[in-house]
Computed example of a mutant assay.
Amino acid sequence: MSEQSVLLLKKQLRELTQNPVDGFSAGLVDDENIFLWEIVIVGPQDTLYEGGFFKALLTFPLEYPLLPPKMRFTSEMYHPNVYPSGEVCISILHPPGEDTYGYEQASERWSPVHTVETILVSVISMLSSPNDESPANLEAAKELRENYPAFKKKVQRLARRSAEDF
């Protein structure tokens, strides 16, 4: 499978390089490793993250596209759907099949039709519309619900700092 994975990832990288998509950039961390990508997401306009530049890593398994990659922000991120470690928790990055907890439908989870572009568009959507009902970061979800002004201040400070560090 890994030979097919390499070809598919090279194709997706070439497409993103030739036809950049607004909102993010993607490239390899090391030209010798097609399975590790560095991502920069531009904070979406009209959100608390606007103006920020958030770095992340996408790590693809050898079984890609049968299994999803993992995405982890390396820039500081405060969001209900991002673990304190930086790992992104959204449905399309969860392994295919039924959710053992019954929260997600199989159709919401990973499918081989997803591409780097669809993943990153979903992450940008996540930044725009946090899901605080199934949080990865309980503190961020609680603050979003119970003390929005404090949440807003913290996120806007992060966005400014990420732009300065970029």
Rank of each mutant, 00 (worst) to 15 (best):
Y64K: 11
Y64H: 09
P68W: 04
M71H: 01
M71P: 02
T74M: 07
T74S: 09
T74Q: 06
S75D: 05
S75M: 07
M77I: 13
Y78T: 01
P80I: 02
V82M: 03
Y83S: 06
P84S: 12
P84T: 11
S85E: 07
S85R: 13
G86W: 08
G86F: 07
G86C: 13
E87P: 01
S91Q: 12
S91G: 15
I92L: 12
L93R: 10
H94N: 09
P96D: 06
P96S: 13
P96Y: 05
G97S: 01
D99P: 07
T100Q: 11
Y101H: 14
Y103E: 11
Y103C: 10
Q105W: 04
A106V: 01
E108C: 09
R109E: 06
R109A: 06
W110N: 03
W110D: 01
S111Q: 11
P112H: 12
V113L: 15
V113W: 14
H114I: 05
H114S: 09
E117Y: 04
E117F: 12
E117N: 05
T118Y: 03
T118M: 10
I119A: 03
L120G: 02
V121C: 08
S122M: 05
V123C: 05
V123Y: 00
I124Y: 00
I124D: 00
M126W: 02
M126C: 07
P130E: 07
P130I: 03
E133A: 07
S134H: 14
P135H: 01
P135W: 00
A136V: 05
N137M: 05
N137L: 01
N137V: 03
N137T: 04
L138S: 15
E139L: 02
A141E: 04
A141K: 01
K142E: 11
E143S: 12
E146L: 15
N147G: 13
Y148T: 06
P149G: 07
P149N: 14
A150T: 14
K152N: 12
K153C: 10
K153S: 15
K154A: 10
K154T: 11
V155D: 00
R157L: 13
L158Q: 02
R160K: 15
R160E: 15
S162M: 10
A163G: 05
E164Y: 09
E164Q: 15
